[in-house]
Each structure stands twice: as structure tokens, then as C-alpha cells.
Design a binder for these strands. Structure first.
Length: 559
RNA sequence: AGCCGGGUCGUCUAAUGGCAGGACAACGCCCUUUGGAGGCGUCUGUGUAGGUUCGAAUCCUGCCCCGGCUGCCA
């Protein structure tokens, strides 16, 4: 996202990325906004941002960047009962991390409350709004149904003076929660429910995380949102499909006020297979401890992916890959995994780590030596490192099979395999405990086969990783799997029962080559043949390294 | 049932009256001291029935299917 080059290129000449770019190109051609492009990302601070928000951030920020426009971060904080400063802080951090550059343009809907109030007064004066005494249940009952029109409120035709007086007293706190509302006077017969005299203000005696006790009436989304966009001079107000039915109301408020009127455009929200995306459900996973907080590496939150080892770059690329359209979609999680593998493959330092160790003793090897290993075959500039080698090693438990299936070309009794960057070894003896478990392999090495010397013509099919037993660093490794066992858990009645009981496996005795000792939080590695891993930010301590598996390597070996 | 929106490979997305293309996934081959990466290749699609047209994914009509809407949430 940070590239700003090619900004001289005329956007109209460029192939539009999606239907929203087409709209903007058209607007610019017609000089609709005087060439301005100004977008915004308007989260409510009632939870942490998830990957669906990332799509929206990339879209909105990307548009501003591509058209040399502006991008606002705006907190839509109109509901004091659900919003908290903790969420504000996390959102700021996540948007920045993703690369959504809002500069100093952080805004709060709550800062516009006075302006919105004045506009409400204007609407009353124009005869387009009224104070209604009906309670929630009465309003619901009078709204009608899908096929029947609603009934007009008995309070609909109060005088302007009475409405003005009542609204002022609502603001002063003279009435209980829910006792009165301010409603737009539109059309109780409209086939669109949103136009059946929607509520503009409700009475909520609650402390607001920023405004404290200043207000006890709060604007509803429909009343507030267009006002916010108008005040900020937004040109294209991009939101998700479920707001399509609200667009006539968005337009009605702004037209009735006669103020600056941005254009609302809707696109399909992201749904990802094997995950839930609703904030309500994510909140429940956190509150009821199904996961270890909002940034649990199994969560589809931005902070969860970050902690898991996803890069901002890979999430941006993912957003680019999936595109933007208006049809509902369930995006396969493999697209996201591809994006992160693609990035990490090019950039992650390689290391050898044995997750489930089994001891190998080289009966004909004495002494020790340091062997050269490539840090990143995709990047020659990453250089080389030295890996200690000695008589006693660990290899991966499942790189040895006593009774291998056809096509298995790793270590078997009497068979040979190459140790990556080292020698070819032969398994001479299998040592078992009383229960018949393999506990040690006695092997011989062929000193003519040292890696890189070209002194051997011997060829083996298999190459396995290893670590020197006395040099290895112990670490905890956390292996994650998808959080749900069904493709679309969000649509399941009993979605909590679809949680994958094996979504986390903790390995406490992994053995890693010694340079890993200096790894810092969030450092990313490819453990060769095992996958991509990063140092966990929550459980790593000075004395103990904890790694999260970001994603596996693609493994084409099938049993 | 009323209104609004939407239906293109298994998945996501292009083609805006003129060769249905790309990516992911899958599969095969080549290469490989990561069963990774890379290279090459294969497979698979316009919901349906009509109409307009030299020509339709695209325009028109009917039907079918999917999503959203009856919060003082956003």
C-alpha cells in the first residue's frame, strides 16, 4: 500500500480495478466532485477489526491512494452502550499496521453531535421530523409488515413549537430511556421499512466513552451516517450490501437538509470459509473463552492474523486477489493462505526445527563441525549461516517409518536419506522401549557425501531436516488448525458446536538450531519442510521461546 | 408475500453487443539437497426458456434460485 509512484498516470486511462473505480472514473469525467476523491473507513468501536474490515480498509484507502485523494478514519461512535476506548485503540493500531494511512484525519461521529442536533432542529422546522411518545413496542406494532403498510403515529402532527420544545427537553434529560424518540416524517406506507418514519434520536442515559455525560440523546445510524459523510466532505461513501435498503433514507436526510451530499455505494462483504465474521459472534468467542482473546491466532481478526505471523503485505495482496463486487460470496480460505505463503516464501529466514524429535546416533562419527546453510533460497542477499553438526542428532519422528508405504522416500530400516546441508546417513539399527516405541536410531554416515563438496555421486530420494542434540534450543511450538469444522459456520444454528476441538496443538519440546536463540517477538521463519512460524508476542518470555505456526507449507505428498 | 439487490470454472474475479480470460484449488509432467519454491501442461463455467441481432455472459420478456429488509444496533 505504500507505493505512491505512478501518481501522474491519469486514473481514467487505467483499467478500472472494479465497479467502484468505474463509478469514480465516470464521476471524474463528468466533474461531479471537481476531481476530488475522498473516502473513509467508519468502524464502530464495539469490537476488534477483522479480515472483512481489512478488505474495506484496503478498498477505501486504496481508492484514495490511486486517485490522489484523501482517506479518513472515522469512529462511528453513536451507541455509548457498546463502545469502549480499548476498541478505539485497537482499531487505530490495526488500520495503521495494515498500511491504511489516514495521516492526522482521525474523526469521531460524537464530535459532530452538536451539528447533528442543530440539523435535527432544522428538520423539525421544515415539518420533516417530530417527537413521538410511542414506546419501542408500540412503534414496532405500528410499523406494519412486509405486505401491510404501517400506521401513522398519533404524535405525528404535533406543532413545530411543541416538537422543538420536546426535543430540547429530551436533550436536557427530562425523560426516561425510551420514553420519547425523534422521528423523521416520511411515509408509513413505503414498501421500504427504512422510510416508515425512522427514528433519528433515542434517549439513552449512559456515559459515552468520549463525551461522558454531555448527551443523553444519541443519533441512530441512519440519521448520523450521512451527516458524518457530509461534514467530512466525503465523495464516495462505501459500505456493505445490507445498507442498500438504507440508501433512499441516506439520500432523503441529506436532500431534506439541503447539505453537501456524498454518494453511497455498496459492495459485498467478505465471507471466509471455515470462519465466522460477525462481530457479535467474535465477541462471544472471546467473552466465553472459546479462544484466548481477540488476538488469538485462530481468530480472523487483524490482530489475530498479526500475532499468528501474517504480514500486512500478504493481507493487502489477499484483498487485491479477491476483488470487489456486488454478489454474495464465500471466499475459500486457501486464497488467504496462498497470499501469506507467497509473501513469506520470498522473505522468511529459513531454519531447521524438529517439532517431534527422535534421537539419531551416528555410530561412526566423532567430533563436531559447522555446516553451511542457505538463509533463503529465494533471496541470495540473505546469505548463509553455520549450523553445528555432531554425533547425536534429532530428526522428525515421522521422517522415519519402520513399515513405510509405497512412495515413502525418507528414512527406513537399512535405508539411506540425506540430512539437509550435511551427509547421507544409513539406518543400521532401530532401538525400542519395552512398549515397542522407537526411541533411538543407530545410523552410520558416509563422509564422502558431505553437502556441497561434490565428492559423492550417490543419489538419494529423500532429504530430511535435523538439529544437533547438544546444540539445539528448546522451544514451545503452537500448531493451529481452522477454528471450525464446517465450511460456513456462521449459517449454522448451533455454530458453537462446530468449533474444531483440535484447532490448537501445543508442542512443548521442539528442538531448533541454535541461532534461533536470538529471535525477537514477531520474527518470522520458515522451518524447513514444516511451515512458516513466528515468535509469539504473548507467551514468549526471556527464558522461553514460543512459536506460532502461521501456515503449513504446501505438502504434495499424499499417503 | 411486498420492496431492494444478485446469479460466469470447485472458489474468487474479468470480459460493458465481437475469441468466455486470470488467480486460487485440484491433477499430471519437468526440475529440485525443503515431497517447499520454480517451470510446463491439463481439467472445469455464462441459472433457465424465449426474443432482438450478422453476432448476446452483456440488451428485452417470463420463470427459477440466492441474499438483505418488519432494532430506539451498525
Amino acid at each position: 500500500m505504500e507505493e505512491t509512484k505512478n501518481t501522474n498516470e491519469n486514473p481514467v486511462e487505467r483499467k478500472p480495478k472494479n465497479f467502484i473505480y468505474e463509478i469514480i472514473d465516470e464521476d471524474n469525467k463528468n466533474d461531479k466532485w471537481g476531481g476530488r476523491v475522498h473516502t473513509r473507513f467508519p468502524p464502530e468501536p464495539n469490537g476488534y477489526l477483522h479480515i472483512g474490515h481489512a478488505k474495506s480498509i484496503c478498498l477505501n484507502y486504496g481508492i484514495a491512494r490511486d486517485y490522489n485523494g484523501k482517506f479518513n478514519l472515522r469512529f462511528d461512535d453513536t451507541n455509548p452502550e457498546k463502545e469502549e476506548q480499548e476498541y478505539v485503540d485497537s482499531i487505530v493500531e490495526d488500520v495503521k499496521w495494515l498500511g491504511g494511512d489516514f495521516g492526522d484525519r482521525v474523526f469521531y461521529a460524537s464530535d459532530y453531535f452538536e451539528q447533528m442536533y442543530q440539523w435535527a432542529v432544522e428538520l423539525i422546522k421544515k415539518g420533516k421530523a417530530y417527537v413521538c411518545d410511542l414506546n419501542a413496542e408500540e412503534i414496532r406494532a405500528s410499523r406494519g409488515t412486509l405486505t401491510e403498510q404501517g400506521k401513522e403515529s398519533a404524535y405525528r402532527n404535533r406543532s413545530v413549537e411543541e416538537n422543538l420544545d420536546l426535543l430540547e427537553r429530551m436533550r436536557k434529560g427530562e425523560f426516561e430511556n425510551g420514553a420519547k424518540t425523534l422521528r423523521a416524517k416520511i411515509d408509513m406506507a413505503s414498501p421500504n421499512f427504512n422510510m416508515r418514519d425512522p427514528i433519528m434520536y433515542r434517549i439513552v442515559h449512559a456515559d459515552h466513552h468520549r463525551q461522558g455525560k454531555d448527551w443523553c440523546i444519541y443519533p441512530t445510524y441512519d440519521w448520523a451516517h450521512g451527516n458524518e459523510d457530509s461534514i467530512e466532505g466525503i465523495t464516495h461513501s462505501i459500505c456493505t450490501l445490507e445498507f442498500q435498503n438504507h440508501r433512499p433514507l441516506y439520500d432523503w436526510f441529506l436532500d431534506s437538509l439541503g447539505v453537501y451530499h456524498p454518494q453511497q455505494i455498496e459492495f459485498a462483504r467478505l465471507n471466509l470459509s471455515y470462519t465466522v465474521m460477525s462481530k457479535r459472534k467474535l465477541l462471544q468467542l472471546v467473552k466465553e473463552n472459546f479462544v484466548d482473546g481477540w488476538d488469538d491466532p485462530r481468530m480472523p481478526t487483524i490482530s489475530g492474523y498479526r500475532r499468528r505471523g501474517y504480514t500486512a503485505e500478504s493481507i493487502r495482496n489477499f484483498a487485491e486477489i479477491i476483488g470487489v463486487a456486488k454478489r454474495d460470496a464465500l471466499t475459500d480460505i486457501s486464497l488467504l493462505e496462498f497470499a501469506v505463503r507467497d509473501d513469506l516464501n520470498k522473505n522468511a529466514q529459513r531454519a531447521m526445527a524438529v517439532l517431534k524429535p527422535i534421537k539419531v546416533v551416528l555410530t561412526n562419527y566423532e567430533g563436531e563441525e559447522n555446516l553451511e546453510a542457505v538463509n533463503n533460497p529465494e533471496n541470495p542477499n540473505a546469505g548463509m549461516r553455520l549450523v553445528p553438526f555432531s554425533k547425536e542428532l534429532y530428526i522428525e519422528e515421522n521422517d522415519f517409518m519402520e513399515n513405510p508405504p509405497k512412495g515413502f522416500h525418507r528414512l527406513i530400516p537399512g535405508g539411506e536419506v540425506r540430512l539437509r546441508y550435511a551427509y547421507i546417513i544409513k539406518c543400521e539399527e532401530v532401538i525400542k522401549d519395552d512398549d515397542g516405541n522407537v526411541v533411538e536410531l543407530r545410523c552410520t554416515y558416509d563422509k564422502e557425501t558431505k553437502s556441497g563438496t561434490g565428492t559423492s555421486t550417490k543419489k538419494v530420494k529423500g532429504v530430511i531436516h535435523w538439529v544437533s542434540a547438544k546444540d539445539a534450543v528448546d522451544a514451545e511450538v503452537r500448531l493451529y488448525d481452522r477454528l471450525f469444522v464446517v465450511e460456513n459456520p456462521g449459517t449454522e444454528e448451533d455454530w458453537l458446536s462446530k468449533i474444531n476441538p483440535q484447532s490448537l496443538e501445543i508442542i512443548s519440546n521442539a528442538k531448533i538450531e541454535p541461532f534461533i536463540r536470538n529471535a525477537k517477538q514477531q520474527d518470522k521463519f520458515q522451518f524447513e519442510r514444516m511451515g512458516y512460524f513466528c515468535v509469539d508476542t504473548k507467551y514468549t518470555t526471556p527464558g522461553k521461546l514460543v512459536f506460532n505456526r502461521t501456515v503449513t507449507l504446501k505438502d504434495s505428498w499424499k499417503k
